[in-house]
Design a protein around this nucleic acid. Structure first.
Lengths: 200, 200
DNA sequence: GTTGTAACAGACCGACTGGTCTGATACAAG
DNA sequence: CTTGTATCAGACCAGTCGGTCTGTTACAAC
């Protein structure tokens, strides 16, 4: 086999991810992705058939990392305590504790950038996002069901989805205010709200 | 005075708002805005100096309507009950009751589209968004303070911001899943979480 | 060394972009 | 009826866009 192209592909994905998260998909030109990844037109189109294909690869990689992150946190929460309510709170707390780190690594969420463009979604880019959302929903619903076996008038799926909603909404709030500490503070608020629900 | 250009300007803003909410700012071309508003290049650039100027006008109009909506709901909540906790719940409930209507009128939020593009934000488009966020924060913090005068380890500003976060996050969730009912369900979830907090 | 091919480089292309410019048109004031 | 101007129409322009094409280079197999 000739040269190994994998590192180049990763460099392109890294640069594209940063640019798309910062400025959105349509506002990110391939010329800029190519320049910032120190690549070339020929190289880019050798690895990706089109810009849309790049978007699909970006989302696939991002969603896989997201789900891996979720599963690590789930495992840690399960190992940390035998009390079901405590597990829920530990789970949320683990994201709260790493929120500042997260926000210094990325200025927003790739999901937001991709979902903002409806025509892009309709070209089949959002399947992996839905997978990730379902994984978060089911993971947290499991923890919540153990803590609230007979919830009074609550849909635990919605309560579980609310954590994803908090993440995405907090990204927007951080961007609007220019203050990345809102991510940690919103995760803290949602933990305290969950705590109120579980300790009633 | 010659012809009245105000209706044309509004038609352009209406078309642009729908297109930008659907597909984002960069992905929305002026040609398309002009076509869908049944206008022309000359007409467009008579009313707006540039595309960025259009963005600023869009956000200004959208934020003003947003704040007006907030103030109506605040007044209604205050009129509806004397109990402070009840006022908070009524306030959230009013958005829950109109959520389906909201989602049939718009597929997402203009704030998301505009904030997604950092370079656009840096060109001074987000000032009005911050105003709106502060208005929501202060309005709801007022209601919460009356219900929880001495909150134990809670930052009521963050708890108040959480409603805005829920709105924005739910817009993302709706777009990802293609299911607009998530808006109502997330507002219901956050109301139930607030209820748990207030009735502890 | 020859050869085959994945990996890369960059000139080039048509389509479309935001924006300009010239001119036409409606309408109120005198 | 003339005139001034806000409003509008659309041909046009330079630059950028995603994408193509031709060619070169590195490396493994033989």
């Amino acid at each position: 086999m000739p040269r190994n192209g994998a590192p180049t592909r990763e460099r392109i994905l890294d640069a594209a991810e940063r640019l798309v998260i910062d400025n959105g998909y349509a506002a990110t030109s391939l010329d800029r992705v190519i320049a910032e990844s120190h690549s070339s037109k020929g190289s880019f189109f050798h690895h990706f058939a089109s810009k849309d294909e790049l978007a699909r690869a970006l989302v696939e990689r991002y969603a896989a990392a997201d789900i891996a992150h979720l599963e690590t946190a789930l495992a840690e929460a399960n190992a940390a305590s035998d009390d079901a309510a405590e597990r829920v709170l530990r789970f949320v707390r683990s994201f709260e504790d790493t929120a500042d780190e997260l926000m210094s690594a990325q200025s927003s969420c790739l999901y937001v950038s991709v979902l903002t463009e409806r025509e892009l979604v309709e070209r089949g880019t959002s399947g992996q996002v839905t997978n990730a959302i379902v994984a978060w929903r089911e993971g947290l619903t499991g923890l919540l069901q153990a803590a609230l076996p007979d919830p009074p008038g609550l849909d635990l799926h919605d309560v579980a989805d609310h954590l994803f909603v908090t993440f995405e909404g907090a990204f927007i709030l951080c961007r609007a205010t220019g203050d990345p500490s809102h991510m940690r503070r919103q995760l803290r608020a949602v933990r305290q709200l969950y705590q109120a629900l579980l300790s009633r």
